[in-house]
Design a protein around this nucleic acid. Structure first.
Lengths: 231, 231
DNA sequence: TTTTGAAAAGGACATATGTCCCAATAATTC
DNA sequence: GAATTATTGGGACATATGTCCTTTTCAAAA
């Protein structure tokens, strides 16, 4: 985890209006860090000591069962919190968070939050908003995963992730680079995911090209996903 | 929904220390209501206008897919909130909540919360605690449902629900009265649930008696559930 | 270019789970 | 009590999904 210049904190605080939610007394205790792709920000089971605010990049949140199975719960992008639930509940870290791209975070040790924020409504409202947002996402996710077959989940996933993530452009192309993550996110096996992709191919919904999945029939996918969408 | 005497509000506020989290200015706008078994407190999709604090009884939270499938998300007992997420996010009601037994709630219209609570840290902290608690429960629930087969889910469910709910005594007996709810909670079909119960029977883990499932082998069930437990 | 090894895709089969329907039982009405 | 209707459990079969392992592809090293 690389330490970064103090002036950059200002940049991100401006960008995301964090001045409105963090009390000034907290400023001296903020620090900005970058973790490289593949590095972990925190690990399931370890004691929690710090709140992170994700201000740049993309991180993968996942949990591992004792048997070694992995479930990807979400991808985090700005502005999201890591360690918020643990802070409120006073518990060990629930999920492992790993940088998918290079990720920049503002780091705030719990002890300063305890001291400066527990009486500060704007901060508490901010937490409430971010957490209820997560809650909602998790609700949808749960509903989708339990109530619908892999086909629907995959269609839904493709629709919400098939755009150029750097530029937020809809391109209808989805990298197969991390197909295993995808499998773990929609809660199925890599093998089965492949099977369903093949099915979609035969139905003319998508086409496999080199390292990419090209969407051929948006309408068809939307129909298959029904009203259920990730995110 | 039956309106109840004002003096009773005091009783529940004392019982659950609500004086510590609700500002006094809010007191005139609280009211106490009881809904009978089977009645619904709110319905998925309708506009949200009120926060409820469950102070007595048991309510079932569930969602219904467009195809008509039902997923039971949780059972709520005191002290829990209904309409909290909707309040913060400003959205329509997400899930339907139905009284399983007679349920008593304190009702607070959103407009008064907006007026009297958004600046009041104890209330916000209270919300945060209740919501993160729910969040955690949902996390476990999701993990369990996606990562483990029905056997494990059922074992886990039996372990956490097989006690005399009125008196919190472990009796090792579980009513089959609402086996359909159980199926919807652990995310499987009624048919398959029956099949697995039969399996458990053959393994000597449980025994079916009249309207009840009698647990025969706690240790065996615990082994089957592994480290995964509902709640 | 050939060789070698890892990663990705797919075949074959086993298992878990869902759907549909019928039989048995219990609850209700007449 | 008999007749009727709901509720419950289970059989038969279809489908979805997982596991294991082989084949293929691709890329790095020689």
């Amino acid at each position: 985890m690389l330490y970064m210049s103090r002036v950059d904190i200002q940049f991100y605080m401006d960008k995301y209006n964090l001045h409105e939610v963090l009390p000034e007394r907290l400023y001296p205790h903020l620090s900005l860090h970058t973790v490289e792709k593949g590095e972990q920000l925190c690990r399931q089971g370890e004691p929690a000591k710090t709140l992170y605010i994700v201000v740049k990049g993309k991180a993968k949140v996942f949990t591992t069962s004792v048997e070694g199975k992995t479930l990807v719960l979400s991808f985090q992008t700005p502005i999201e919190l890591i360690g918020d639930i643990e802070y409120i509940q006073n518990i060990d870290i629930i999920n492992t968070v790993e940088a998918v791209s290079s990720v920049t975070v503002i780091k705030i040790p719990y002890k300063f939050i305890r001291k400066h924020c527990e009486q500060y409504s704007p901060f508490l409202m901010f937490m409430l908003k971010v957490i209820t947002d997560k809650f909602n996402a998790k609700s949808n996710f749960l509903k989708l995963n339990v109530l619908y077959p892999v086909e629907v989940r995959l269609a839904s996933y493709l629709l919400s992730h098939s755009f150029d993530e750097e530029h937020s452009l809809v391109t209808g192309v989805h990298s197969t680079k991390n197909l295993k993550d995808t499998a773990n996110l929609i809660g199925t096996s890599y093998r089965h995911l492949n099977r369903v992709i093949q099915q979609f191919n035969e139905l003319g919904l998508v086409e496999r090209k080199d390292k990419w999945i090209q969407i051929k029939d948006w309408e068809g996918l939307r129909e298959m996903a029904g009203s259920s969408l990730y995110e």
